[in-house]
Nucleic acid binder design. Structure first.
Lengths: 194, 194
DNA sequence: AAAGGAAGTTAAACTAGATTAACTTATTTA
DNA sequence: TAAATAAGTTAATCTAGTTTAACTTCCTTT
C-alpha cells in the first residue's frame, strides 16, 4: 500500500522532518478491509482513528427501534472513526462499515498518544482537522433546520458528487434524514423540473 | 474580573508552569458585554474565541427568509465564537449575542496563534476541547433524526437544566428545531401526563 | 399604577414528509 | 442464465409539526 497520499495530506497541515516522518510511519498500521466489513461496531470500544487511502465507509447509528441513521460517509483523503468512543475509550455509539473494499492508515489509541508526545506538531495537525470537522458539523445542523429536504439533497449532491454516485440512494436518504421513498420523489421532481 | 475559574478550567486539560500561566494571562483580554450586545455579527470576521466567566450567550443564524435559528447556547465554563469564521478569518455565518450581562476571557486570532507557538501544550488543550465539541455536535445530529421533538426537549432539559431555566422558551424551541407554539404544546402535554 | 411591548398559550386549518403496499429494475449468486 | 435478493419507484393514506390568529400573562418603563 502506498502511503504517499497520506504524507502529502499531512504536509498540507504541518511540515515533518524526515526523522519525524519515519517515526510516524513506524507507528501506523496499514490495513485492508473488504466491502461490508466493520471497522467499528456499536458498543465496542473504538481502538483506532483511520485515514482512508482508498475506498468508502459509512458511519451509522442503530436506534432503539432498529432503524439505521447514517451520520457520515468517508472517502479517500478523509478520516473515519467513532471519535467519542476513541477519545474516551468507552463503548461506541456508532458503527463504521466499509461500502467498498477499503485501504486505511490506522492510528491506535496508544500509538497516537505516544506520537502526540514524540511529535508535538501532530497535536496541531489533529486540532486543525477536528476544527474543520466541527465547523462542518455545526453547519449541517443549521442546514437541517433551515432548509427543506430537496434543498438539502441539492447541497449534498453539489458538495459530494463523488459520494452521491458511489453510495446507494437509500443510505443518502438516511444521511439527509428522510425516507428512501421521499428522496425518490425529490429526484423525480428534479428531473421533471427541467 | 476573576480569572481563577478560567485557570482551573485549563488545569483540567493541561498543567501549565507559573511562567506559562503568566504568559497566557498576558495574552488574553478580559471583557464585559451587556445583555443584548453582540460578540460576533454574521458577515463580520470573527476576531476572538471566548471563554465565559459569567453570563450566557446564544449563537444563531439568520436565514434568507429572516428566520433565526439558534445553533447553541453557552454559559459559564464554556466557549463561544464562530469557529469557522475564526479559523479561516472569513465572514461569519453566525451571530453571537449575550442573553445576560457577560464576562469573557478573549483570545484574539493573533494572540492565540502566538500562544500556540509559545506554549505548545495549548494545542493539546484546544484539540481536546474541540474533540468534545465535535462529538457533541455529531450526537445532536443523530438525536435530531432519530428522536421526536418531545424526546429532544426532555433530553435538553435534563442535560442543560440551567439553560432551560435561564433562556426564553422561544429560543429553546429554535434550538430544538421546532416552533414556539409546538414547544408550548409539548410542555403542556408533559404537565398533564403526570 | 398604567400602558405597551415581549413572551407564552390555545386551537383550527394546513403541509412536508412518513408509512404502507404493490410494483419495477438492478445486482448477486447458484 | 435463472432465480433470488437488494435497490429504487409510485401512489394513496396518514401524522408530526407548521401556520395563522386571537388571546393571556409577564416584564419593563414611565
Amino acid at each position: 500500500m502506498n502511503t504517499s497520499p497520506f504524507l502529502k495530506y499531512i504536509s498540507k497541515y504541518v511540515n515533518l522532518t524526515p526523522e519525524e516522518e519515519t517515526l510516524l510511519l513506524s507507528k501506523i498500521v496499514l490495513r485492508r478491509y473488504l466491502k461490508n466489513q466493520y471497522i467499528v461496531q456499536q458498543n465496542d470500544i473504538c481502538r483506532s482513528v483511520n485515514y482512508i487511502l482508498s475506498g468508502c465507509t459509512k458511519t451509522f447509528y442503530v436506534d432503539s427501534e432498529g432503524q439505521e441513521h447514517v451520520v457520515m460517509f468517508s472517502i479517500e483523503d478523509w478520516w473515519t472513526s467513532d471519535l467519542g468512543s476513541f477519545i474516551t475509550q468507552t463503548p461506541a455509539d456508532f458503527n463504521v462499515q466499509c461500502l467498498e473494499n477499503t485501504q486505511l492508515v490506522q492510528f491506535t489509541y496508544e500509538n497516537l498518544e505516544e506520537l502526540y508526545v514524540e511529535i508535538p506538531k501532530l497535536e496541531r495537525l489533529f486540532r486543525k482537522i477536528i476544527e474543520r470537522a466541527f465547523v462542518a458539523s455545526q453547519k449541517r445542523i443549521i442546514r437541517n433546520f433551515s432548509l427543506d429536504a430537496k434543498e438539502r439533497y441539492q447541497i449534498f449532491k453539489n458538495a459530494y458528487p463523488k459520494i452521491d454516485q458511489r453510495v446507494p440512494q437509500y443510505m443518502i436518504a438516511s444521511y439527509l434524514g428522510i425516507t428512501k421513498e421521499f428522496l425518490s420523489k425529490i429526484k423525480s421532481q428534479l428531473i421533471h423540473e427541467q
